[in-house]
């Protein structure tokens, strides 16, 4: 139940971050910026194929190969994959 409440909240946070963070290629920063960029990548790219998956679904270590798979399948850049991994590992 807690998960189902948190997930929509997370979506709203991600949407807010997506609006707030410019999608500048190659712009790198600290973990907070990576987290925000990752939230944007997550909200904009995952739905190209499927429903958004909850970051709380998997442990930090499990997200690594999953995001690597998605990098290949979804055509993510390495930087985007690292950002979205930062987001998933810190939002779970």
């Amino acid at each position: 139940m807690r998960k189902t409440r948190l997930f929509p909240a997370l979506l709203m946070v991600a949407a807010g971050l997506a609006a707030a963070v410019p999608a500048t290629a190659g712009e790198r920063g600290g973990d907070k910026e990576a987290f925000a960029r990752g939230a944007r990548v997550w909200s904009e790219n995952c739905t190209r194929c499927h429903n958004l998956r909850d970051p709380r679904e998997f442990r930090d270590d499990q997200w690594r190969p999953i995001i690597a798979h998605m990098r290949v399948r979804g055509g993510l850049t390495g930087a985007e994959a690292r950002d979205v991994l930062t987001f998933m590992q810190n939002a779970n």
């Binding site: 999608a23 500048t24 055509g75 985007e80």
Partner: peptide, 16 residues
Amino acid sequence: VRGGVNIGNPWKLTYA
């Protein structure tokens, strides 16, 4: 060989 390239905000290209 496949991947993605950001080609100018917000444009992106993927290839395979």
